[in-house]
Nucleic acid binder design. Structure first.
Length: 405
RNA sequence: GGGAGGGUAGCGAAGUGGCUAAACGCGGCUGACUGUAACUCAGUUCCUUAACGGUUCGGCAGUUCGAAUCUGCCCCCUCCCA
């Protein structure tokens, strides 16, 4: 009989707050272990982070992994038979699954688009007849481009799938609107997401202990960029039986902090909050200051694969460093930098036509970028505990974005 | 010595009289990427320009209103037979 950590319970404790702000350092206790916050959760959509092994994830001090109920829905029975996501994937630590709500947008109004942070005016929704996902009150009908399968997920299905997958933390089923959606559409979508939240809680209750350990549920706050919507939905969700909250939406960079403040001022202080899908350094620091405890994002690994590597003094494009014998970042403690890989060597792997070289490049640089972001959260936590978060944030941003902050 | 096939932009390779500054691929250069339809995508790549314009398809000379495309000669490469 497997024994689970923390008495098989989910809880959150705040260790120290940022004076005068909404942020804090804390610990999330889950049946598969603790998460010291603020923390970055690595994205392993299908149960594995692309090009990074579980051992390598541990080696960069990753604390938790996020997977996706949508992508794993067909595998969920097999996962359940193998004891849940942590056991099945080999990650063996705290996990979170997304509800599939993101795919409502990425296969629907945002199909083929970029989830932009700073180009609101250029964003146009995909024509409804070209979308692969269609929203109605019951849930979402969609066509899976990978499996060529026509399928349906509503709040009940999402909860059933997530409870079979068995992450420690689940997300209520939500609809992510795009930057192109109007206020009127956001009112409609938000009301639907709120009804879906109630249905999610009801269904989740039925299955949340099925795998022998307790699985908790976060409600996802939407409401776009409108203060009245964000505050009203946060107030409602604060009264519901959620274990924590997801902060969702497509954000404009300059308004991220303010939107998070509206939400977190209304949400209960003693429950953890997860900022969904963001992790550029400024997003992490602003998010932490404004009350987000955990983060997840595909950017560190995707940008690494696409040639953008993080350094203390801002990102570099690896393609511009032919023959360079510099390390990616000589202040970095990641396994790639400690092993002495130079920019020139990595560029050669990046440009190579050989598949094994590209894979090695993807592996080495994903590890670097993940460690960079994870270290940022570790340092932010230390700074909160030491009472100097604001100084740390200012100094970090000045180095990383010399022309912006 | 005889026979055959070729020489197109940085490279490979289409094109075989006007719609061709010349498809496409690679390489090069820019730029994007945030709950992963993403080991991806979008530009750009003869010279010059804000636009215009200029010079090209081994070389030279022709035919034609018009040639990378047709003709002649020359140069070079590959293969086969002696």
């Amino acid at each position: 009989m497997t024994t689970y950590k923390n008495d098989n319970k989910f809880s959150f404790e705040i260790i120290k707050e940022i004076p005068g702000k909404l942020g804090r350092a804390g610990i999330i206790h889950t049946p598969h272990g603790d998460i010291h916050t603020p923390a970055f959760m690595c994205v392993g959509t299908n149960g594995q982070v692309r090009f990074v092994s579980m051992e390598e994830l541990k080696s960069v001090n990753a604390q938790a992994m996020l997977s996706n109920g949508y992508h794993l829905r067909n595998t969920s029975y097999e996962i359940a038979e193998n004891g849940g996501l942590a056991a099945w994937s080999g990650w063996d630590g705290p996990t979170l699954t997304d509800s599939g709500g993101f795919q409502v947008m990425s296969l629907g109004s945002g199909l083929g688009k970029v989830v932009s942070m700073d180009r609101e005016k250029e964003v146009v929704n995909t024509d409804p007849q070209d979308r692969l996902a269609h929203v109605c009150e019951d849930g979402v009908y969609f066509h899976d481009p990978f499996t060529d399968q026509d399928d349906f997920i509503g709040p009940e299905e999402s909860m059933q799938i997530q409870c079979r997958i068995g992450a420690d933390i689940h997300m209520a089923y939500d609809e992510l609107t795009s930057l192109a959606d109007s206020y009127e559409y956001n009112v409609e979508a938000l009301a639907r997401t709120e009804r879906w939240a109630i249905r999610s809680i009801e269904e989740h209750k039925k299955h949340c202990d099925d795998l022998g350990y307790h699985q908790s549920l976060y409600g996802v706050i939407q409401g776009g960029r409108w203060e009245d919507l964000r505050r009203s939905t946060s107030k409602k969700f604060a009264q519901m039986e959620f274990d924590g909250y997801g902060l969702g939406g497509a954000f404009l960079k300059e308004s991220l902090g303010e939107i998070l403040r509206w939400c977190c001022e209304e949400l209960p202080k003693n429950k953890p909050r997860h900022l969904l899908g963001l992790s550029h350094p400024d997003d992490i620091l602003i998010g932490t200051e404004m009350g987000a405890d955990t983060f997840d994002c595909v950017a560190p690994t995707r940008e690494a694969r696409h040639g953008k590597l993080y350094t203390k003094y801002g990102p570099i494009a690896i393609s511009k460093f032919a023959d360079s014998d510099e390390l990616i970042d000589n202040t970095c403690d990641c396994p790639t930098c400690k092993a002495g890989w130079t920019r020139g060597q990595l560029r050669a792997l990046y440009k190579s036509q050989k598949l094994e070289d590209k894979h090695q490049y993807n592996n080495l640089t994903s590890i670097h970028n993940l460690r960079f972001i994870i270290r940022l959260t570790e340092e932010a936590r230390e700074a909160i505990l030491n009472g100097n978060f604001e100084e740390y944030k200012k100094e970090f941003l000045k180095n990383y974005y010399p022309n912006k902050y």
